[in-house]
Design a protein around this nucleic acid. Structure first.
Length: 637
DNA sequence: TACAGCCCTG
DNA sequence: CAGGGCTGTA
């Protein structure tokens, strides 16, 4: 039954696979193949994931990253490949049991209605289900290169042992539930089989050939495409059957419908059970040191390879399934269902939530050998503070939903960036940069178009749906109210103020940046800005003055500055790039005076004096005019 | 000594 | 645009 490379299937597809196989063999299955002696794999996997957190995170991280996990898994060169196949199967079975258990808490689950045998377990699962409702669909974390040593060997804490024990028990109960589910499924199927007489074999094979290919390896999550198909079947199922005209078709539809429904439930349950496990583990991990909290390598490392291997076996299916599938769902699939052979437990599918200090060691090294369009966003990186809320929201409701429901998010911030492109992995690198340095000190509100992105130092960062970028912008918006730093809007405002004042005093700055919490650093930065503005200004003046002299201009009166002149265009481009500000006439006058000063100085060879410009500066600094009061408003821009 | 401002550099 | 060095000034 398991002689085919089942290990290359994803954890999601394994469910379909098991079901399909179960049907196909019609109870010929020996339970002992399925039900393995102990839970050593899964429990040790659990222990290992947390335990590795304690001991060898950084080294293993780097090793995992450099080891190109994709090829590692797809080629089957892993040492785990040599492990008894039963280990994987058992672990996966445990995982499925976990899923089934989660389903038992779902009101929609009717296929496995009575679970008296595992009543207490079900209750526990329900509680866990409720507990983790809010965290469902978190990206999962897989550990493919685990080498599971005994937790006690490395002195894991007692609470962790306890957690592992609990999880072990849960897994056992889930195994039982899975068996029940399989039996149920078989019952239903065989009922239909007898009804449909000799069709059974054909139907089973057909199931294998069609349904299996069609949806057996991905979760039929309620995408438009899939739900449409499902509802079609639901609509057509019973009536068709009554017609008896096409019993074969009827049977197919019903099985497909049932299977779809079942898989849909399983799909939901996967997220929930994974979240449940993660929650348990993370709660344990919080007691550890920051370094220990570092989780094993993120799941996405293997995703590309997994996907590839999966597609190798199910190319037609993948193509048909993926068209019209929301990105978010694809992402979940990619993380959930495309695990490879080492994937043993939901436990290891953990979202890392290290403290900020861990960011630099986590994010920059991530590589992703993954088709660009397959992963809309990555949330495996750390999620401090409100980011985590945003991520949670995204994970719960998908990337296309509004953030308006988030209490901390003004509804207006919900729009996605227009220039978003699918570059999820760049987004990873972006995030570390943004979080570690720029967002904190240079929050950047949107509204400046490309400037915004550049100012955030995100020139190569493109995010599908604008999720991450808009997230960054939301960060900026929120910071805008805190005003612990200067924003690009402040810079823009300062540049416009330069049209009035070239040498603003500290008091002027404080007056005209009332929304800025001034300290020595901020003041220096603002002063530096104006210093830079002046620098550019004078450089332009000198350049044009010299050019005029080269061009043979003799009379200083020929040196004028109008809105048509090149000099003005250069200055306007610098200080008023958007050209949405009417430059005051006074600035033209000052510019003209400055240009003439330079012209005179250069024509009289004063520029031989190293400090010849100082005299000009002395003149120009007296030409400042008052900045309009409109600039005092913090919302003027 | 502290600070503002300029210059140079990246 | 920012950082750092340098200079002039109070």
């Amino acid at each position: 039954m398991f002689d085919e490379p089942i290990t290359s299937y994803s954890n999601g597809s394994i469910i379909s696979h098991l079901l399909r196989k179960t049907i196909h063999t019609k109870r010929a299955l020996d339970e002992s193949h399925f039900y393995l002696p102990n839970l050593a794999v899964s429990s040790s996997t659990m222990a290992d994931s947390s335990q590795e957190d304690q001991s060898s995170i950084s080294s293993r991280d780097s090793a995992a990253e450099s080891a190109s996990p994709g090829s590692h898994l797809s080629t089957g060169a892993s040492p785990e490949e040599d492990r008894p196949l039963s280990d994987h199967l058992q672990a996966k079975r445990a995982r499925v049991e976990n899923i089934i258990r989660g389903m038992s808490g779902s009101p929609n689950s009717r296929l496995h209605g009575e679970n008296e045998r595992a009543e207490s377990d079900v209750r526990e699962a329900r509680e866990a289900y409720r507990e983790n409702k809010r965290k469902q669909r978190l990206p999962q974390h897989q550990e493919h290169h685990l080498t599971p040593p005994a937790p006690s060997n490395r002195g894991s804490s007692g609470s962790k042992d306890e957690e592992c024990h609990k999880l072990k028990e849960q897994l056992q109960s889930m195994q039982r539930l899975l068996r029940q589910l399989q039996e149920k499924f078989l019952q239903v199927y065989n009922q239909e089989g007898t009804e449909c007489e000799g069709r059974d074999d054909t139907g089973a094979e057909n199931e294998d050939a069609t349904t299996g290919k069609e949806s057996g390896f991905v979760f039929p999550m309620s995408t438009d495409d899939e739900s449409e198909r499902t509802s079609d079947r639901a609509k057509g199922g019973l009536p068709d059957r009554a017609k008896t005209g096409n019993l074969f078709l009827t049977h197919q539809k019903e099985s497909g419908n049932l299977q779809d429904t079942l898989k849909h439930e399983l799909c939901k349950a996967v997220s929930e059970s994974v979240d449940m496990v993660f929650k348990k583990i993370s709660s344990t991990g919080l007691k550890q040191s920051p370094a220990q909290r570092m989780c094993p390598r993120p799941e996405h490392i293997s995703v590309g390879a997994d996907r590839k291997s999966q597609e190798d076996g199910n190319q037609e299916q993948s193509h048909t399934e993926e068209t019209g599938k929301p990105r978010a769902l694809e992402y979940y699939e990619s993380t959930e269902t495309r695990s490879a052979e080492g994937q043993t437990e939901a436990l290891s599918l953990v979202v890392r939530k290290p403290p900020l200090s861990q960011l630099s060691s986590v994010t920059p090294t991530v590589k992703r050998p993954y088709p660009l369009h397959h992963s809309p966003f990555q949330f495996n990186y750390s999620t401090p503070l409100h980011d985590s809320q945003i991520l949670e929201h995204l994970l719960k409701y998908g990337p296309h939903t509004s953030f308006g429901t988030l209490p901390c998010m003004p509804p207006s911030m919900d729009r996605a960036s227009p220039d978003s492109v699918e570059r999820p992995w760049d987004a990873i690198a972006m995030r570390s940069k943004v979080t570690s340095s720029h967002l904190a000190h240079h929050p950047c509100p949107s509204g400046l178009g490309p400037v915004t992105v550049d100012s955030l130092c995100l020139p190569h960062v493109k995010m599908e749906c604008g999720d991450l970028q808009s997230m960054a912008e939301r960060n900026s918006y929120m910071s805008l109210n805190i005003q612990e730093g200067l924003t690009p809007n402040h810079l823009k405002k300062a540049k416009l103020m330069f049209f009035y004042t070239r040498y603003p005093s500290s008091n002027v700055l404080k007056t005209f940046f009332p929304d800025v919490k001034f300290n020595r650093c901020i003041t220096s930065q603002l002063i530096k800005w104006f210093s830079n503005f002046r620098e550019f200004y004078y450089i332009q003046m000198e350049k044009f003055a010299r050019q005029a002299i080269v061009d043979g201009v003799n009379n200083v009166k020929d040196m004028s500055v109008s809105r048509d002149s090149e000099l003005f265009r250069a200055l306007n481009m610098h200080y008023n790039k958007a050209n949405d500000f009417q430059v005051p006439e006074r600035f033209l006058e000052v510019a003209e005076i400055t240009l003439q000063e330079f012209f005179n100085a250069i024509s009289t060879a004063k520029d031989s004096d190293p400090s010849w410009k100082k005299a000009i500066y002395k003149v120009i600094c007296k030409l400042d005019s008052d900045v309009p009061d409109e600039f005092k408003s913090s919302t003027c821009l």
